[in-house]
C-alpha cells in the first residue's frame, strides 16, 4: 500500500486530498510521475514530491509502504 497526500489545488485534479494505492504484485515498476498523470494531474503543475520525508524526483519508483506528499509548483514566499 502507498499513501498519497495532495496539497492545495492538486487535490482538485486528483479529485481527492488523500489516496491509497495498492501496487501491482507482478514485479511491474511504477514511477510516481506516471501514477500522478494517470490521476489527471498535469505534471507541469507538480512542484515538489516528498516520499517518507525526503525529496524525490518525478521518476522515483514507488515501493510498498511509501508515504508520498505531492505539492504544487510554488512561485516563492
Amino acid at each position: 500500500m502507498v499513501k498519497f497526500k495532495f496539497h492545495l489545488y492538486l487535490k482538485n485534479f486528483a479529485k481527492a486530498e488523500e489516496k491509497e494505492l495498492t501496487l501491482p504484485g507482478d514485479g511491474m515498476r511504477l514511477d510516481v510521475g506516471s501514477y500522478l498523470k494517470s490521476l489527471g494531474i498535469p505534471l507541469e503543475e507538480v512542484g515538489i514530491i516528498v516520499v517518507n520525508g525526503k525529496w524525490q524526483d518525478i521518476d522515483y519508483i514507488l515501493r510498498d509502504g511509501d508515504s508520498v506528499e505531492v505539492f504544487p509548483v510554488y512561485l516563492g514566499g
Binding site: 496539497h7 520525508g53 516563492g76
Partner: peptide, 14 residues
C-alpha cells in the same frame, strides 16, 4: 492562502 501556502512544503523538505 497568500504566501503562507508554502509553509507545509518548506517544512516537508526540511
Amino acid at each position: 492562502y497568500g504566501t503562507a501556502q508554502i509553509v507545509n512544503a518548506v517544512n516537508a523538505i526540511g
